[in-house]
């Protein structure tokens, strides 16, 4: 396959992207379909803790929540994965054994990626050796913005190789890419270099995931699928806090890529506080009463 010429931009119509997002956001999803969508969103979640103060205790607590999001409702789905730093992978792996929940690890000198490639490769290998099923890498935004696309491409390919069987999610950190054109370009680049997923953000930079950026990335995935027949996954991360937002993202996916992408093999939410809001909305739908965060576990 011919590679895209990354020095030329795919033109993006800013106004149309934002207009389409705002139009799709007006979809009203109620009752049965809402419950179904909320449960789907929960099953797509990467419960995340990426803080300097993370401890085994915190990770274990998160794993418990992943396995049993809400004790009073045993039939609701578990989340898709738990996302942690490499040195917490083993703890998470041990506590999720047999649950079918994946362990995702950020690697490659997350969140900045400002380390020599050899260090980033070792970081990745370490995470995989510890048992990570999925690796979330960051691209070198500095190099990307400087136009060194080949360098970024080769780095992603090298990390992909280091991943072995683990799935690779490529974090574009769209908040630092400034334009939709850059987002589109980085998406194309990441997919062609071997990423299994493309992911918006680290969650450490504002703005994190936004819906217009997600739409641009979803369209890149769609075009790549038409060209190659390969299905690449999408993971918006950071800043998604409410169930309502989550439903809006699902509508974007459905309308851009179709129902085939509506499962946790191809779509994920990177979030920490989203889970509780989704749970509260599910309980609201089941009981009819608006819920209070007082009665849901703090993760």
């Amino acid at each position: 396959m011919n590679l895209t010429d990354f020095t030329t931009s795919v033109p993006i119509d800013h106004v149309a992207v934002e207009e389409r997002v705002s139009r799709l956001n007006k979809r009203s999803i109620k009752k049965g379909s809402k419950v179904q969508a909320l449960k789907l969103a929960l099953s797509m979640m990467d419960l995340t803790t990426l803080e300097g103060k993370d401890s085994p205790g915190k990770v274990i607590q998160l794993c418990q929540k992943a396995k049993k999001p809400y004790a009073a409702m045993p039939d609701i789905p578990t989340v898709a994965a738990v996302c942690v730093y490499p040195n917490m992978v083993k703890v998470a792996k041990d506590h999720l054994k047999g649950s079918g929940i994946h362990v995702a690890s950020v690697a490659t000198a997350f969140p900045s990626g400002m380390a020599p490639l050899s260090v980033r490769i070792d970081d990745t290998k370490f995470a995989v050796e510890q048992g990570a099923d999925e690796v979330d890498m960051v691209i070198s935004r500095g190099a990307f913005l400087a136009g060194e696309f080949n360098l970024v491409f080769d780095e992603i390919a090298a990390i992909k190789e280091a991943c072995g069987k683990a799935h690779l999610k490529v974090i574009l950190e769209t908040g630092e890419l400034h334009t939709y054109e850059n987002v589109r370009k980085a998406s194309d680049l990441a997919m062609q270099a071997g990423g299994d997923f493309i992911k918006t953000s680290t969650g450490k930079i504002s703005p994190a995931a936004t819906q217009p950026v997600t739409l641009v990335m979803l369209e890149a995935i769609r075009d790549y699928y038409y060209k190659t027949g390969k299905k690449i996954g999408m993971k918006p991360a950071g800043g998604i806090r409410t169930a309502k937002q989550a439903l809006q993202y699902l509508v974007l996916v459905k309308e851009t890529l179709g129902a085939e992408w509506l499962n946790n093999e191809l779509f994920r939410f990177g979030a920490s506080s989203l889970a509780n809001d989704v749970l509260m909305q599910i309980v609201k739908q089941e009981t009819g009463q608006y819920q209070s965060p007082d009665y849901f576990s703090i993760d």
């Binding site: 608006y290 819920q291 209070s292 965060p293 007082d294």
Partner: peptide, 8 residues
């Protein structure tokens, strides 16, 4: 009804 049933 909504004032009295709201859990928050």
């Amino acid at each position: 009804e909504h004032f009295s049933s709201h859990m928050d």
